[in-house]
Structures are given as C-alpha cells and as structure tokens.
C-alpha cells in the first residue's frame, strides 16, 4: 500500500516536471497578456509615455465613434454573408462530390488546393482581377460578354463582397473535406432502411443526412464564424493603403484594431476594441455550444 503511494507520488512529480515549462508558458504568453489587454483598455497610452487610467473612457469613445459602428457592422456583414454562402456552397459540392466516382480525387484536389494558399498572396491576385479595364481580367471578360464593367473594389456596395470572396474561396476546400467525411461517417444501415421505406433522395437528405450531419454543421459554423469575424489579411492587402476603403466600406474590426495600435499608437482604444472582439467571439461560441447541446 505504502509502496503504491510512492509510485503515485513519483508519477505526480513526473507529471509536474513535464508540465512545468508549458504551465509557465501558458501563463506568460496567454493568460497574462489577456489580463494585460483588459487592463490597458482602461488607460490612455501611446506606448511610449506613462499610462493614464481613464476608466471606461475608451469604451465611451468607441460608442460615440461613428466609424466604429461602421466597422462593427462591416464585421457582421462579413459574417452574415460569409457563413451561409460558404456553408451552402461547400455542402452542395460535398454532397454531390461524395457521389462521384470518376475523377473524384482530382476534383477534390481542385476544390481543396485554395485552402493551402497564402491569404496575402491570393489577395493580390484577386486585387488584380478586380481592376477596371484595361487591366482587370474580370472586367475584361465582362466586356467581351457585353456586360457593363463593375466597380468591385472601387464601389461602396461591391467592395465588401469582393474582399470576402477570396476568403470564402480559400476556406471552401476545408469545409468540403469535412462535410464529405461527415457524410461518409453516417452508417449505411440508415440509408438502407430508408430505401426499404421507399424514401426519395430529397427525403433521405432531409431526414437522414442533414440531421446526422448536425455536429459537423455546427462545428463548421463555429469555425467559419470565427474566421470571418477576424478577417484582416485580405482587407489589408486588397484596399488602397490597407485603409479598408472606399469610405470604410470594407474596414473590419481587426483592421481598426491594427490601425489604432500600430499607426495611431492609441493602445487603450486598440485594446478596448480587442475586448469587444473577444466578447463577440465568446457570445457566438456560447450560443453555438448551447445549440449543440440541445
């Protein structure tokens, strides 16, 4: 008995030994910075001088700042457009791709490859595509079809979807792969039972495939929501001087944070916005986890 205790103790020592460095790391590089961000958000600080405690002033200033509200609404627009479009597209593609035998691997690779690209690199490729004639290939193609050229990045209404498109494009492959895996994990006995009942394809989709895919759908929704809410690389590289223009039409929260922190040196305002971002992500995750539990 006493011997087993010493073994347990010895193993506990090993455990702490293994965990020592990671624990210090997580405290220093995750928890302390999180608290630090909260505490800076209550100060006015230009990163050089002294911090001045200002209470909730930064949050009040954000509340009163019309640009912040535009930025927030843009951020939600990325989410509101990005999640449904990418989920719908990826599900449809996955659903049919799963049934295809001929050239399956090739097709799957084509859909998946964009996921492996670098967002910055592809942002510049798309930026070029969107140019007006005589250099932008989309507008040149439209012109050959006799369609009026579009503003894309130079339009207050089209710019945000135009910036969003490469983000959706890059994420699609991942979602498709996960969807296919989800579809294949559904036990074939379910389908056989449905076949015996004489259910049609549509009915099978509605009553078996979709309900069975629920965890997959929720997982992908959470992941893509978080991704679209944090959009930055595309906007920074596709808009003039990385400003999120025209007229702030594409400026998302993270870009606003970056500009506040590293161009205006308003660390208090910047961290206050990170706290807002944190809160939004937290709420969305909690809502989605609750849906999952149901």
């Amino acid at each position: 008995m006493s011997k087993s205790r010493t073994i347990a103790q010895r193993r506990a020592i090993w455990a702490w030994l293994f965990l020592a460095v990671p624990i210090i790391y997580f405290i220093l590089v995750r928890f302390y910075p999180t608290l630090d961000a909260f505490s800076i958000s209550f100060t006015e600080w230009n990163i050089v001088g002294e911090k001045t405690f200002v209470g909730f002033d930064n949050y009040v200033r954000l509340w009163d700042d019309p640009v912040f509200w535009i930025v927030l609404s843009n951020t939600f627009e990325y989410l509101a457009l990005g999640v449904p479009i990418s989920m719908l597209l990826s599900f449809i593609i996955a659903y049919y791709l799963d049934q295809v035998r001929f050239g399956h691997g090739f097709l799957r690779a084509c859909y998946f490859i964009p996921f492996l690209t670098t967002a910055v690199a592809m942002a510049w490729v798309w930026r070029w595509f969107y140019q007006p004639v005589p250099i932008g290939i989309i507008n040149m193609a439209l012109g050959q079809l006799g369609i009026v050229q579009q503003g894309f990045l130079r339009s207050t209404t089209q710019a945000l979807p135009a910036v969003l498109a490469p983000a959706i494009w890059a994420g699609l492959g991942f979602q498709i792969i996960i969807f296919i895996a989800g579809i294949r994990a559904i036990p074939t006995s379910y389908y056989e039972a449905a076949k015996i009942d004489g259910a049609g394809a549509w009915q099978v989709l509605r009553e078996i495939t979709l309900p069975q895919l629920r965890p997959t759908i929720i997982f992908l929704t959470v992941i893509s929501s978080i991704g679209f809410l944090r959009i930055f690389d595309q906007v920074y590289n596709m808009t003039q001087e990385g400003e999120g223009g025209p007229l702030n039409a594409t400026r998302p929260l993270v870009l606003n944070i970056y500009k506040a922190a590293f161009e205006d040196f308003e660390m208090g305002m910047a961290t206050a916005q990170t706290v807002v971002l944190f809160t939004i992500l937290l709420i969305i995750t909690i809502i989605q986890l609750r849906v999952l539990r149901k």
Binding site: S155, T156, E243, G245, P246, L247, N248
Partner: peptide, 14 residues
C-alpha cells in the same frame, strides 16, 4: 489625407 480621399469618394461613389 483620408478626409480628402473620402471627400471625393462620397461624391463619386455615393
């Protein structure tokens, strides 16, 4: 600079 950029964009784009 942005105030001038936006000034022109407001009339051209909106």
């Amino acid at each position: 600079r942005k105030t001038v950029v936006d000034m022109l964009d407001r009339i051209v784009l909106t």
